[in-house]
Design a protein around this nucleic acid. Structure first.
Lengths: 330, 330
DNA sequence: CACCGCGATGTTTGCGTCAACATGAGCCGC
DNA sequence: GCGGCTCATGTTGACGCAAACATCGCGGTG
């Protein structure tokens, strides 16, 4: 900066003013400074600026895996929103759920300069004390609803599962089987609860639940078992991948979809409308989740990080009916 | 930091030494300092550290979209590698390809403190001068091979397309049709070139190419047109999504896969083995790409960012044969 | 016993920037 | 014509940390 100042024949403070776009600089001086900046290839040092201002214009995102459709879409939305507000996004991946990995992320979080964090994973790890956040740091949790004091933004899991289950009942199916996500996932457990409640509301005793691990393979294996029973006519899978695996198993067993068995997924990933048959599924609005998470985070940052508003913001879900569901056989 | 020093009855420099894990501190002193740090909830200020050291322990990733399978897998690998080396990853999304968006990212890049950047998009934008990187900043480009002076890491697109095409020829198909990615993508164009070359090597005149936009929908639409011609027995799609769309169109038209038409994809996304039928595809090793990109970037960082080694590192691809391809009808 | 060396710790200084205050030149109005 | 005002610009100091250097105490050595 001093070099630029000398080159332009002004003081460094004037360079600072130009670089920050302040108005009280004479136009000719501004031009001269800009030219010098160009000539010397000057770029402001973000670290020094952050040091002075105490703001980093950066938010951290903590997640276990980029591998799931939902996380990815959420991250995309967060990054987009952050960019609009002139914030950058720093990724803090947790390689696995062991204590060591969590501790490492914690250290990286501390070292790193962020104004706030978004946690995209099951927050019970926080509750169980397996991860500790610096006090006073603005935090928003996505895709979970631990009873923690943190702000939470989530898709309406209860409503989504209800819509899916009710849709199958409305088509005349007498029973709806559920391929759930892992028991460690709050989202998965909410969908299970809501599926059960919806069946009970229609006077149906819920069958036993089958837990997969979100993968197509687990959906395939579980369905191979389920479909051995010819009375099974309706399957609700907790995500589109497991629904895809289920459909593969049904195809392989020669069962017609939806003639013999109806299948509903969850997520509405891009590919779902091109599955064979096109998949009826519950659309999650990840973009809104990301947007709302960011706006709640920005609120906290603006408030100095002291408003520990632990409310839950819920984003509505929507059933998308395609061709993998049909009326039950008579 | 001063507070901690006073609380522990030492100088701030000793606190600094403890915080950086230097060895020349008496054990009792270290314990005392650590206790004080805990008690006062002290966490080091990354900005100040970066300011002093000139290192940010952070690398930037520039990408247009998180929405494609390949980008997401690559990002995952990069984040994992970075974490191992104690670097964090800062996302710099480019909302669209307009000049404005690129300029915005450029500004953000300058403001942001990064030790190097990985560019995950078509680098011809750099060549065309639509984006300018600060001189001396270590750069690695992924998924492209612009003739720019930058280090490039990429999957072996030529080999992958050759494997796919040759596989279909080996099965006895007399002609292989290609659903390509958009013309703006280097990867897509390489696959086109290699597909053509492989056909010509067998004395076959390549048919006209059809460009999709990577989406299932575009694969579906193009295949609807292609399959109107009953002599079409083999389709090679430039990614798995378009292959999925192609299979949907074929199902809809009542064509058997692979009895009537064989389909090959590209990427080997998780879901591909659960498509119906399970998709024969070319597996790209995104993890290796991310790993190699990071190691080349770290080399440059270690060398002070001055080694503009513009070499291309190629990662081998592999054909995964499943059930969407079969011998040609007699 | 004077001296050296070494390891633990303290002191000083400056990284690049910007807020706060200081300066100084031009302008207005009475 | 001079006080007071505005606006452009310069000067100073501080943000939190760590490199470089200074100091201190202790044990060993000739």
């Amino acid at each position: 900066m001093a070099d630029v100042a000398q080159h332009a024949g002004v003081s460094s403070q004037t360079v600072s003013r130009v670089s920050n776009g302040l108005t009280n600089v004479d136009e000719s001086t501004r031009d001269r400074v800009l030219a010098s900046m160009q000539a010397l290839g000057y770029r402001p040092n973000g670290a020094a600026r952050a040091l002075k201002s105490g703001r980093f214009n950066s938010i951290g995102v903590i997640m276990f895996t980029l591998g799931t459709f939902g996380n990815m879409r959420t991250l995309d939305a967060i990054a987009t929103e952050a960019a609009k507000a002139d914030y950058s996004v720093t990724l803090i991946p947790l390689v696995d759920q062991t204590q060591g990995a969590v501790t490492g992320a914690y250290r990286r979080l501390n070292d790193q300069a962020v104004d706030g964090v978004v946690i995209v994973f099951e927050a019970h790890l926080i509750d169980r004390g397996e991860i500790t956040l610096p006090p006073g740091l603005p935090v928003v949790v996505i895709d979970s609803n631990a009873g923690s004091g943190y702000a939470v933004v989530d898709n309406d899991q209860m409503e989504g599962a209800r819509l899916a289950t009710q849709h199958l009942l409305d088509l005349g199916h007498r029973q709806v089987h559920h391929i759930a996500g892992p028991t460690t996932s709050f989202s998965a457990m909410h969908r299970v609860d809501s599926w059960r409640a919806t069946l009970r509301a229609s006077g149906i005793t819920p069958p036993s639940v089958h837990h997969g691990d979100w993968s197509t393979e687990s959906g395939y294996q579980i369905t191979l078992g389920l479909a051995a029973d010819p009375t099974v006519t309706a399957i609700f899978a907790a995500n589109d991948q497991m629904a895809l695996g289920a459909m593969r198993a049904l195809h392989q067993l020669g069962r017609d979809i939806p003639g013999d068995v109806s299948v509903v997924g969850y997520d509405d990933m891009e590919e779902a409308h091109s599955f064979w048959p096109p998949l009826t599924t519950v659309r999650q609005d990840f973009h809104s989740v990301g947007r709302l998470a960011m706006s709640r985070l920005f609120e906290q940052i603006a408030a100095g990080g002291h408003s520990s508003s632990g409310g839950v913001t819920t984003v509505p879900t929507e059933l998308v009916v395609r061709e993998s569901t049909g009326v039950a056989r008579a």
